[in-house]
């Protein structure tokens, strides 16, 4: 599914260059649940951006489903994001002036799906996260946990194979955080590939495989639980 080969991400040049990623090699198979763990500044967010096709590496190749993403242009990358990836962000990143349903529909809008079909898919995603009755509310009317569930619904709406979760529990209290994590691992049980980025080891323990990043390099990669 994911194949990172000698990925470098270098900011600046000469003496002042910063190697955010310093030769990363990582492969994630279909259906895995991987946590990428590291301190802030370790390069885990850069790794997430590259895996999420939000950024391109300075050197190296990234194959997503066997396709070389590292040499794609902006439009092709947008297409990959829209069709193959689902994002869950720490700050939920819902658009405040759109209703919950419209937020969930958004990735489908960019896939040029018909309005009725869009509505149906978005509603079924909302049902999955248990919030179908909040469809007409606005994000500001929901609690943090509910907002994060809406953003999960949005990530699921397009039915992507890969879910990328960037500190999904960072803004939640431990109880709701646990619920959200349980939900994410239940997605993995259904067959989705999940990549979870976190600095919190206790969160990472939910995953089946933990990859540690430090100073832009992978320092350990262990399978802690068999799928």
């Amino acid at each position: 599914m994911i194949e990172l080969k000698d990925i470098y991400k270098i900011y600046g040049d000469g003496d002042s260059e910063i190697r955010a990623l310093d030769g990363i090699n990582l492969s994630v198979a279909d259906g895995e649940f991987v946590a990428i763990v590291g301190q802030s500044g370790s390069g885990k967010s850069t790794a997430m951006n590259i895996i999420g096709c939000l950024d391109v590496p300075t050197y190296g190749q990234y194959f997503l489903d066997g396709e070389d993403v590292s040499c794609m242009n902006e439009i092709q990358l947008a297409d990959v994001r829209g069709r193959r990836l689902g994002f869950i962000f720490q700050q939920y990143n819902l658009i405040p002036k759109l209703s919950v349903l419209e937020n969930v529909e958004l990735p489908l809008v960019y896939k040029a799906m018909k309005p009725e079909e869009r509505r149906l898919k978005a509603m079924s995603a909302l049902e999955k996260v248990g919030l179908p009755d909040r469809a007409d509310k606005y994000p500001s009317q929901l609690s943090g946990g509910q907002q994060q569930r809406v953003s999960i619904a949005r990530a699921l709406a397009g039915d992507p194979q890969l879910i990328l979760a960037d500190e999904p529990t960072g803004a939640l209290d431990s109880k709701t955080g646990k619920d959200v994590l349980d939900f994410i691992s239940s997605l993995n049980d259904e067959g989705k590939t999940v990549v979870l980025i976190t600095h919190d080891m206790s969160v990472a323990q939910k995953a089946k495989r933990i990859v540690r990043i430090q100073d832009g390099k992978i320092v350990s990669d262990e399978v802690i639980r068999e799928g």
Binding site: L54, A78, L106, R154
Partner: peptide, 16 residues
Amino acid sequence: TREIGIRKSLGAKPWD
């Protein structure tokens, strides 16, 4: 700006 970022992460192309 943030809204634009969100839209782009969800697959919006520059043209959109």
